[in-house]
Design a protein around this nucleic acid. Structure first.
Lengths: 266, 266
DNA sequence: GCGCCGCTCCGAACACTGTACGGAGCCCGC
DNA sequence: GCGGGCTCCGTACAGTGTTCGGAGCGGCGC
């Protein structure tokens, strides 16, 4: 042990007791650092495990230090959501392919849309805390990443032959469906996670109760008793995809209707 | 004033000091009472104003008394959501009208679906706290009211000529879109409410900033600058409705495709 | 060199939260 | 009469988000 320096007065911070503050060249924290730390905490322990104190501790900082970089917790959560969307790939331009073109399946514009929808869904499902944030922080839809994605989506649809207003409507339906479907799935998944059960295991325990509860609901009863095996994992994936395809059919049909209408009038 | 009874010992509760507990004929509280009180609190002050203590106070009860009727706050919220769905009208049977029938617009099965979707959306929009609950509490989808609604929805689609599996898929798309679209709208509305602004007023203040932020996003820029007037209120309603109609077109198209496919093979 | 401004970091404190626990009052069945 | 069970709730615990004041420090003007 090194001898203490000859500092008679006790309590006064000496060279040794003083914690050797880091050089103030640049700040010890940064907004990105905070957001990514929040992300890992959210992903591993869920949304109700994220508190400013715990997050601060993870960064070797006090809870209140974070407030120099982030106005409040809601803003932090909005930033986290934006960060997730930032990592999504943007849809590629589809070249000359247009809605109504005869070309064989799979049509390029269709698969491009499917990929965007699947990407958004995957992002929500693998960060299930997002649904809570989307639910109570309205600002999310003006984050830069979300805007980038929207813009690219609109471009995709315009290139496929829709005018901007129709493109916006089509995008609204695809995105709305995606968010809604993923919300339902993610809420389910995180409820499972909260009880700490595996999906299969929980199903086995809960299903009998649910089926019992559907005694007066013959259709639900039939669905749950027959379809349930493929409702797990892969079944959900393909069911989401066919939902998107249904919407694509709708877009195509509406386009065709409008198109013949225009020709008829001309 | 009546004279005090001759009770020499002080501190022992007398007839007068004792608070005259109500007869225990039936309990002072009930689950329904609690849920409806929670509903009015949620509707008037939003979700973060609902605390067990405040709710208890509103019922002239202690906070912890509620736990005799409700396991925890999450369960209470799930019950509140179910209560809202319980008040939705069920779709009426549509008679003989079937998908693919030639009959003139508006087709009965289509407007029936539109009405269900509009009902669910309206419920969410006028109780915006629901989106937060749907986000965190996965159990909601097994509530009895929701099941009743699903069952009736499936019946509607089956009566319109879909088999159960197709009906389930179609329902998934309509409901998914409805929840997603309403979630986005409601999150926006309650973010507005939190800042205590009127929609118009806030728009006026925020829009310039948003438009500025869309400098690199020509399509979004055009949308926000041109379409914004009708984005308010009625515009959102009709935009949602045309989304539903797009999906209905999709259902019809998919039905037609499957139908000709069957004929071709026969 | 000196003083001062402003920035970053943070301990303490405030006002609340959900809910576990144990006890009090009361009713009914024995 | 008397125990058991139900309802109701005061207290307490272990947190929460956020405000405030202050401490330490870098760089700027003088």
């Amino acid at each position: 042990m090194a001898a203490k320096p000859e500092d008679g007065t006790s309590g006064i911070p000496t060279l040794w007791t003083r914690p050797q503050r880091p050089r103030r060249d640049q700040p010890a924290l940064s907004r990105e650092q905070i957001v990514t730390a929040a992300l890992t905490l959210l992903d591993s322990d869920g949304i109700e495990a994220l508190s400013m104190r715990k997050l601060g501790a993870r960064l070797n900082a006090g809870a209140t230090s974070l407030y120099t970089y982030v106005a409040n917790k809601d803003e932090l959560l909005a930033l986290a959501v934006d960060q997730v969307f930032a990592e999504l790939p943007l849809p590629e331009p589809t070249g000359a392919d247009r809605i109504g073109d005869a070309g064989g399946d799979p049509k390029v514009w269709r698969t491009a849309i499917e990929e965007v929808a699947e990407g958004v869904r995957a992002a929500i499902l693998c960060h299930p805390w997002m649904v809570s944030v989307i639910g109570d922080v309205g600002m999310v839809y003006f984050g830069p990443s979300w805007m980038r994605l929207s813009e690219a989506f609109l471009a995709l649809l315009e290139d496929s032959g829709l005018d901007l207003v129709d493109a916006n409507e089509a995008m609204g339906v695809v995105i709305g469906y995606t968010i809604g479907a993923a919300t339902v799935e993610a809420a389910w998944l995180s409820a499972l996670a909260k009880r700490g059960r595996e999906e299969q295991e929980w199903m086995d325990q809960l299903l009998p109760a649910v089926i019992e509860a559907t005694k007066d609901h013959p259709r639900l009863h039939r669905l749950y008793t027959t379809q349930v095996d493929q409702e797990i994992e892969a079944g959900r994936d393909s069911s989401f995809l066919s939902g998107v395809r249904l919407i694509l059919d709708g877009i195509e049909a509406a386009w065709a209707a409008r198109s013949t209408d225009r020709e008829g009038r001309a």
